[in-house]
Design a protein around this nucleic acid. Structure first.
Lengths: 174, 174
DNA sequence: TTGATGTTTCAATATTTTTTGAACATACGC
DNA sequence: GCGTATGTTCAAAAAATATTGAAACATCAA
């Protein structure tokens, strides 16, 4: 049954087969996937994070791909996302050029960063719009009730913009 | 040019044409769409809410459809969503069976409800999973570091579950 | 340098989500 | 009660998003 197989010494390229997720690992992944879904983070990203989170040691690219059964492209993109959000860190093994990944120490901090990266741009883009809208409403034909609503909206927007930066220092430049 | 048109009295079915959104209305809609997007609420729903929000008086089904240029199905589903979240209210004109819609007074309260409806189910579903996972990890082969992580995760989950119900009373039954 | 290993890119494909619209229900004014 | 104005449902179409995989690229050990 074994293919014209390896000479005894020709161990080199053995495509190592990777263990599929254990039941508990899979269940944890589902947890992360659900939570990530709320913020629109794709399944593959949540799965990668979950795997690292449940692993006692840093995990390399091939293991991620193998154990999760996903494509190189997805692993690469997923890691990029997590890296950009500051949610994972890489360490390099000594004599190897391969990177090994692990979750950033504080999940809480990671989540704040993630949230900020989703919400802040929306708030910022909206500020000038809201100003224009409120002005437009005040200018001409608009019921006082509507003006009141819009004004409050703008107040909130401004408040949120002030508050957010306080939550944590912004992610460092690369 | 006018088609074999209406007898003078046959005014009945005049398909009233609806004004497209003003520039400011459109800009406000984009604001709501962006914000809604963060939580995965579809564009059509955000547009409907935005229209009501910027309207001095309650708006009926046909106006929503006409001014936003969307299908009946979308309007119906959108209103259902907003209704279920307690984000809009309807009032009925006296001698008409037509409903007219307006936003619920407190946008803040609406947002909390919306958030809860997204997050709570995920938290609840996850509770038993997390218990199992932590137990599994403690049982056998698991590094203390991983056990620590998982335990904290469960702690957070529990905390969030306690906290959420305090934020506002749950939506009333229909 | 060089070549093999390790990673990224991106166009094509698959999947999921949203929207449409016509058929179906409902209830209200007459 | 009837007929129609008013809404809802849901299968199918369209749009948005995620994933794949092969080719391009980068980097380091030799």
């Amino acid at each position: 049954m074994t293919p014209p197989s390896s000479k005894l010494s020709a161990r080199r390229k053995s495509r190592p087969s990777f263990a599929p997720l254990s039941a508990h690992e899979a269940e944890l992944a589902e947890f992360f996937v659900r939570m990530a879904g709320i913020l629109g983070v794709p399944r593959s990203v949540a799965e990668i994070y979950s795997l690292l989170y449940a692993s006692p040691a840093a995990v390399d690219f091939d293991q991620i791909q193998g154990r999760l059964g996903m494509s190189k492209g997805s692993v690469s993109q997923g890691l990029k996302f997590l890296r950009d959000q500051g949610m994972v860190l890489s360490v390099k093994a000594p004599g190897s050029r391969r990177e090994r990944w692990q979750p950033t120490p504080s999940l809480a901090a990671s989540l704040v960063t993630l949230l900020r990266s989703q919400v802040l741009p929306a708030l910022e883009q909206s500020s000038p719009s809201l100003d224009r809208i409120v002005q437009g409403a005040q200018g001409t034909q608009a019921s006082p009730a509507v003006i009141e609503r819009l004004t409050q909206l703008r107040r909130w927007n401004a408040r949120a913009l002030e508050l957010f930066p306080l939550m944590l220092p912004p992610p460092r430049e690369s």
